[in-house]
Design a protein around this nucleic acid. Structure first.
Lengths: 172, 172
DNA sequence: AGGTATCGTTAGCACAGCTAACGATCACTC
DNA sequence: GAGTGATCGTTAGCTGTGCTAACGATACCT
């Protein structure tokens, strides 16, 4: 039973999370230049490094991006010698993406640099606040997971049928 | 006294906040098509609506963006009839940006639509969890504020001197 | 073998971010 | 008052990210 009151609070919170995420990323983007890696590239590289070799399609899905977009990101990373494209011997349509040792090194450095400012600020928190923020991040992560799930199941209860919706459905 | 242990936790948290923000915005971006307003435009419009009339430069600063970028965003909003450019009678170099009534209406609708998915997910939380998330958002907001402040003061303790740093300093 | 599906790429669009350079205006000084 | 320098917004041009549409290559399946 969602009361009028708690619904408003949920809306306000959603709104704040939205703008907060925007501003956080705008701040962090400023550190990108230092590592020479943009956010999408850094994020993709991270998946490749930690997620082992995987196909371009899998990588695109993991990053919630369409294949053409990931093609370009990988091309950029490859040009910098951070990842390799490898032919899959079993299915030659696939191209496996693997991190090079340079990629692993750069990731460690770049990632550290990128989060440094954030981590510095986070370190100023007391233990209690840190725990609270960890909890908040955890909740937000679950929420995002549930949002993603919502997109592929139980669509019928959703009323509107915008372009975005149709496109989404088409590409499923 | 920052222990080795808590430093690691801070790094891990910073890392998680980073990727979480990326994924949250990627999800929300999918709703943009529905409102016809991209995230930067929606955000700028929001500032104009709630922050009253303000100059383009102030708007750019508020959105942490360079003036040329804001010029284009405002041009787009103006083309859609959501904001107006007004000459300042006291200083004719300035252009005041003001929201139209259409802009106010569209903001309400678009903003609601954009956060709808997020709000829906948020509403599934229990009261306790909601409070926890509110607290987390609040902490994160403060952290971002402190990050921004750090950029303009006490720069000396920062060791590296990258292109990004230099550019930042130059444009201060 | 032939048709269909899948994968990655290419081409082409829109948008957001930046710097550099410029014109217009203001403010200050001589 | 005239000139000099600062400030504001715009324009031009670059890079990068995201998308769809269309295509070639390969695999699968009957």
């Amino acid at each position: 039973m969602t009361s009028r009151r708690s619904e408003e609070r949920a809306n306000a919170l959603a709104d704040k999370l939205h703008s907060t995420a925007i501003h956080l990323l705008r701040q962090l983007r400023k550190e990108d230049d230092a590592s020479g890696l943009s956010a999408p590239r850094l994020s993709a590289l991270s998946v490749v490094v930690f997620g082992g070799p995987l196909t371009l399609g899998q990588l695109a899905a993991a990053e919630q991006v369409k294949p053409p977009t990931m093609t370009r990101i990988v091309t950029g990373l490859e040009k910098d010698g951070l990842v390799q494209r490898l032919d899959d011997p079993h299915d030659r349509r696939l191209t496996q993406i693997r991190a090079t040792s340079k990629g692993r090194n750069v990731l460690a450095a770049g990632r550290a640099r990128r989060v440094e400012r954030l981590a510095t600020a986070v370190r100023r928190l007391g233990a209690t606040e840190l725990a609270e923020l960890v909890r908040g991040a955890q909740l937000l992560e679950e929420i995002i997971r549930s949002m993603r799930a919502e997109r592929t199941e139980g669509r019928s209860h959703r009323a509107r049928d915008s372009d975005a919706e149709r496109r989404q459905r088409r590409t499923m």
